[in-house]
């Protein structure tokens, strides 16, 4: 058994962060790598799907219209109206775009041949978090005025003044640093780890299949089976993460709109 481990040890190259640095497709530009094309593809697919779904809107909806409306309805009612309250309609376009964009790119991670979640490159989630960050602060400042908004963030009412020394730095860090960071890093980390997990099982299974030892060949299908099982698990994570980033954005907007904290 120990011989097996030794024999199997040095030959297998485990997947690493370098597997995420995909080569440029045209020339040597950083703007023509696979994630960039996948993001562009996602935008095209989302546009085509929802234009087709809403084009011939009928009282008795077709299957396409029904599925389009179901996704829209989910974002509008379960996230927008539920979290933000009576002013929610203004934010539905952004929330809906965010949700469909993230979920499509995430699910690309398990679609055969595409098989790469663009959000596993941290730059994409950073931009999305930046949008959320700018929007919820802008909404808060617009609604309450700059001074009142910042005061609401930094000074919790009903606390002895001395305690502000402890609490105010935490509040400011939460609103201006931790929120955008957790928003983006959570999405990034989930997609990164998920892709790595699938790589381990699939490349591991492939390696075992081509190993000379019969024992490894016999065990190889188990690795592939795990890879397939994990793909279903990943699908769940991908949907959940798209939901969570949208939900949190809605919560931050709701917080900025609320008159007092």
């Amino acid at each position: 058994m120990s011989q097996l481990v030794v024999a199997g040890g040095p030959g297998f190259v485990p997947p690493s962060t370098s597997d995420f640095d995909l080569p440029s497709i045209f020339g040597h530009s950083a703007y023509s790598t696979k994630p960039v094309f996948l993001v562009a593809l996602s935008v095209i697919l989302i546009s085509v799907f929802f234009i087709a779904a809403s084009r011939k809107a009928a009282v008795v909806p077709s299957k396409l219209q029904f599925s389009g409306e179901a996704i829209y309805g989910f974002v509008r009612n379960s996230i927008g109206e539920e979290i933000i309250g009576h002013e929610f309609m203004r934010f539905v376009p952004f929330l809906f775009t965010l949700f469909t964009f993230v979920i499509t790119n995430n699910v690309f991670g398990i679609v055969p041949f595409l098989q790469f979640p663009a959000m596993s490159h941290v730059g994409f989630p950073y931009v999305l978090a930046l949008f959320s960050f700018v929007i919820f602060h802008y909404v808060g400042i617009k609604k309450q005025g700059l001074g009142k908004y910042l005061k609401g963030i930094a000074f919790m009412p009903g606390v002895p003044k001395a305690v502000y020394i402890l609490l105010t730095p935490i509040e400011i860090a939460t609103f201006f640093l931790v929120r955008p960071l957790t928003l983006s890093l959570r999405l990034f980390a989930n997609m990164f780890a998920g892709h790595l997990l699938l790589l381990v099982f699939i490349t591991g299974g492939d390696y075992m299949l081509h190993d000379s030892h019969i024992f490894m060949k016999v065990l190889s299908p188990f690795s592939f089976a795990f890879g397939i099982g994990m793909s279903f698990f990943e699908f769940m994570v991908q949907c959940l993460q798209a939901y969570i980033i949208t939900l949190l954005t809605a919560l931050f907007i709701a917080g900025a709109l609320a008159d007092e904290h």
């Binding site: 509040e171 969570i244 939900l247 919560l251």
Partner: peptide
């Protein structure tokens, strides 16, 4: 109220509970 917690006028929504959990996590990290 934006921290993901309900004001008690109705039932807690699943989204609110999840939001509250993440908000609390954010405060602890900060």
């Amino acid at each position: 109220d934006g921290n993901g917690i309900n004001d008690g006028s109705g039932r807690f929504g699943a989204g609110n509970e999840e939001g509250a959990a993440w908000s609390i996590f954010g405060y602890l990290i900060s």
